[in-house]
């Protein structure tokens, strides 16, 4: 099973490495978003530090929907998903493979975003504990995003549909992730309960995704 998941991820990443259209679009979008935030909210010095968690996660949330809907739309154009459905019996394997692929793509964006944010928002984001929160948040995001993007690509509105479906579902994740990040940066608020909240959210959404994904991709 792990080998099959790995194969799906490898295939997706190889395709992306070939064109680089999704990662580059996400990166450019994320960079622009963070720049716009920083001059629209006049984020200098202390105000930048205070706004950093919110700016960071908003940027991740929006660039994530961009990348996810693009990657599934490409899948549909190439008819890749129907081939995958024929080749892999177990639907949950496809779900894990797709979600892991999205996770890696989003992680690449985060890797660029953290140093960029550190410079623009005048705060040190390059810390292992903050990276941990980023990973936890991105896992849940990828799980929800993969499931809902599979729904959204089959609707008429497509790219518009994904953020409408995904963002309200991501509310608890975003609250927890922003609070955990803020707590770590301020260094005095307890963050355990937020980390736990993120873990619970990730597990619940992965479980829901595994169970329901087959009904989404069927037929």
């Amino acid at each position: 099973m792990l080998r099959q998941i790995g194969a799906i991820v490898a295939k997706d990443l190889a395709a992306e490495l070939h064109t680089r259209e999704i990662v580059s679009a996400m990166l450019v979008f994320a960079t622009m978003a963070i720049l716009i935030f920083s001059f629209a909210l006049d984020l200098r010095g202390a105000s930048g530090r205070a706004a950093a968690p919110g700016v960071l996660w908003t940027t991740i949330a929006f660039s994530g929907t961009l990348g996810l809907s693009r990657s599934l739309a490409r899948e549909q154009q190439n008819g890749g998903l129907s081939g995958l459905l024929l080749a892999v019996e177990e639907r949950s394997v496809i779900f894990f493979g797709k979600a892991a692929g999205s996770f890696v793509l989003m992680l690449l964006v985060v890797v660029v975003l953290l140093p960029l944010g550190s410079v623009l928002l005048n705060v040190n984001l390059l810390r292992p504990d903050i990276a941990g929160v980023m990973v936890l948040g991105t896992v849940g995001y990828a799980a929800v995003g993969t499931l809902l993007a599979a729904i959204a690509v089959n609707t008429r509105a497509r790219e518009v549909m994904l953020p409408i479906l995904a963002l309200p579902v991501l509310v608890p994740l975003l609250i927890a992730a922003v609070q955990a990040t803020a707590g770590l940066l301020e260094g005095m608020v307890p963050v355990d309960s937020w980390i736990r909240m993120l873990v619970v959210y990730d597990l619940v959404m992965i479980a829901v995704g595994v169970v329901t994904f087959e009904y989404v991709v069927e037929g």
Partner: peptide
């Protein structure tokens, strides 16, 4: 699709509730 989204949305409600309360 709607059945799946109805499930996902409903699961989100208690999660949001705890997040908002904390």
């Amino acid at each position: 699709f709607a059945a799946v989204y109805g499930i996902v949305a409903f699961v989100t409600v208690p999660l949001s509730w705890f997040a908002i309360r904390w």
